[in-house]
């Protein structure tokens, strides 16, 4: 009797959060999976069971492969760079230097800005002819550039904006982690004869591993999730050169109104993210020292 009461209490306490998680995460995920096995309803044609037809379409879809490869390059290009920059900035602003508070704030500013605003700022840099970059290169007599308008550089332009935005965010995590390292550890290493680089390599960096794991999981998820800036900067073009998986899903679902195919793409995205997150935990787990 007593036990039953406890169970009821526990479930009642869990219920509100559980309902919201179900309603907004798990039910949509399962609905998406279900929808991916049906055709999109059009006009007088209701949707009908399609089995794996949507997945066949997906494998045969060159745009899907294009955006997937784009996304892989996007991840490879942004994740390590933004993590390294974040770490360097954190180590830098963790030192005693004049105006430290200002520098910390300056590095964190991009994180506070909405992605749309960030993209607009960078539009001002990238605009051919009178953008900041062209104005500076123009001083040296160089020709105009059109970074976002050319298919071989558009993705790089988008990646730079992402790195600029993400590094400050990750820096905050590294900064917090750096401040939990007792100063006496660094002093002990100095007494033992270690130089700054050895201290970083053998003491500081290993102690930051839990943070690195956390940050890199976040970075991977973000690289498949952040698309706001693409709307402003390139609209996925030219010729899908800067389109990413999620942006393509948006286009398929809300421009082409092919919701079933969009659901199929979403399932693939979910599978990729789950595999990456699990893989990272297993890969890093052996190398991470948790307190």
């Amino acid at each position: 009797m007593q036990r039953t009461r406890q169970w009821i209490h526990a479930w009642l306490l869990l219920l509100p959060a559980f309902v919201f998680l179900l309603a907004f995460t798990h039910v949509p995920a399962i609905t998406t999976l279900w929808n991916s096995f049906w055709t999109t309803a059009r006009g007088r044609r209701p949707s009908r069971w399609a089995g794996l037809d949507n997945y066949d379409t997906l494998i045969a879809d060159p745009v899907f492969w294009k955006v997937l490869v784009n996304n892989i390059w996007f991840a490879i290009g942004t994740i390590p760079t933004s993590i390294v920059i974040a770490l360097v900035m954190a180590v830098w602003v963790n030192q005693k230097l004049a105006g430290r508070g200002f520098v910390r704030m300056a590095y964190f500013t991009p994180t506070v800005l909405p992605m749309i605003a960030v993209a607009n700022i960078w539009m001002f840099f990238y605009t051919p002819g009178f953008g900041l970059i062209d104005q500076i290169t123009g001083l040296f007599g160089m020709a105009q550039s059109n970074i976002l308008g050319q298919s071989d550089t558009a993705l790089v332009g988008v990646m730079i904006v992402t790195i600029w935005k993400e590094a400050g965010f990750f820096m905050i995590f590294y900064l917090a982690a750096l401040q939990t390292i007792p100063p006496s550890l660094i002093e002990a290493a100095r007494i033992e004869g270690a130089g700054p680089w050895t201290i970083f390599r053998r003491v500081t960096f290993p102690l930051l591993m839990p943070t690195t794991l956390f940050v890199s999981v976040n970075a991977v998820v973000n690289s498949f999730r952040m698309v706001d800036h693409i709307f402003i900067l390139t609209g996925g073009g030219p010729d899908n050169a800067s389109s990413l998986l999620l942006f393509y899903i948006y286009e398929v679902a809300f421009r082409f109104w092919d919701t079933a195919y969009a659901a199929t793409l979403t399932v693939v995205l979910l599978a990729i993210l789950a595999a990456l997150a699990i893989g990272q935990f297993f890969f890093f787990d052996r190398k991470v020292h948790y307190k």
Binding site: S184, A188, A189, G195
Partner: peptide
């Protein structure tokens, strides 16, 4: 001179052992 150049060793109140 830096601590490293002074050729000495030190035991800290907190021991300062490297936890990893």
């Amino acid at each position: 001179m830096s601590p490293a150049q002074r050729n000495l060793s030190m035991v800290f109140q907190s021991y300062a052992l490297f936890p990893h």
